[in-house]
Design a binder for these strands. Sequence first.
DNA 1: GTCTATACGCGGATAGAC
DNA 2: GTCTATCCGCGTATAGAC
Lengths: 200, 200
Amino acid sequence: MRYSPDHKEKTRHKLLEVSGALSKKQGFATTGVDRLMAAAGLTSGALYSHFGSKSAFFQALIRHELERSRKLFQPQEGETGAQRMERSLADYLSLAHAHNAESGCALPALSGEIARAEPEVRRTYRCALQEMVGMLSEQGTPPAEAWAVIAQCMGALLMARAMDDDAVREEVLAASRDQLRRMLSDEPAAPTESKKKPRP
Amino acid sequence: MRYSPDHKEKTRHKLLEVSGALSKKQGFATTGVDRLMAAAGLTSGALYSHFGSKSAFFQALIRHELERSRKLFQPQEGETGAQRMERSLADYLSLAHAHNAESGCALPALSGEIARAEPEVRRTYRCALQEMVGMLSEQGTPPAEAWAVIAQCMGALLMARAMDDDAVREEVLAASRDQLRRMLSDEPAAPTESKKKPRP
DNA sequence: GTCTATACGCGGATAGAC
DNA sequence: GTCTATCCGCGTATAGAC
């Protein structure tokens, strides 16, 4: 063949990366195949060689994106559970994340489209989230709390993105950060956002 | 004229109601003008008479829908604040709401599209939410908590809708209900979902 | 105010050259 | 494996009849 053995694999990976970014920024359904492929320097034919149809491509893309999202909540070298959570919240619920959907988590960017997608895509979505909850569970956050954390993060970021004013965006994000910190430290509500304070 | 004086007003209202339901179910951008109008028994020309363009129609629709959403959180006759919150949570975070987007709240159904809409639409969205938070604030829920409640409700419902399994959907919704009850009653975390228990 | 007819572009998808 | 060319349907929007 005219192409190196792993050329297909590399191209496929690049397609998922680049089209994923474009989909998170502009939406998947509203972006044509031509544009999705052009973002990776290819033409529409490439999509049908690799995935067969646009909706099959969507499923592969969701699987790939949620794999990336899972890593956002994974602990890094030498972190305690509390440190990981504090870092995750600060990164996730930030204005930077609100303003850069293309490099951010797929949950707030694509859940709306997934909700209207075929059962196969929704199954992929559910399994990925269950894995994420399982992972958090192993690290000391009970499943019920883990679901609540994910829902809160996704909701707050999506709401912030749909607004038109950074000050209000930050108000929403700060409220969620504060709320989650209190919840995860098992402390009762406090009137203002508390400083970093590891539990005694 | 051939039509009664308030015919235009009534038609406009019907358009917003019926197209709003269809948009929440199938998405706004992905539903053509013909279909949106056909749902109200009209043809595409009607949209341009009333609103001028599809995007102008979207803004009117969002304004109308968020007015409806605000009422979901409004207290009813003879309710206390705690009763209202308990009723709101049970109704909002339910499988019925997850399965019937067309008659439900616009926030989980349309926030993704709003996030990619023109600034004018996003301004409408922000103002409506600020009013909602102001309303909750008057009823005893501080603004920061109100933002967290709305984000959590929207995130949990959207996540539930994007899944393919009712058992897991219910797990997500129950986790959020439980979390919000604990937060609103200023109680520390409990291992399982607590029963209705007004604060002492 | 609403409908029908129509203009024109972009959508997804396929065929065949290389 | 990728590109170019092409088919056909649906998208938004407008013009003119009633």
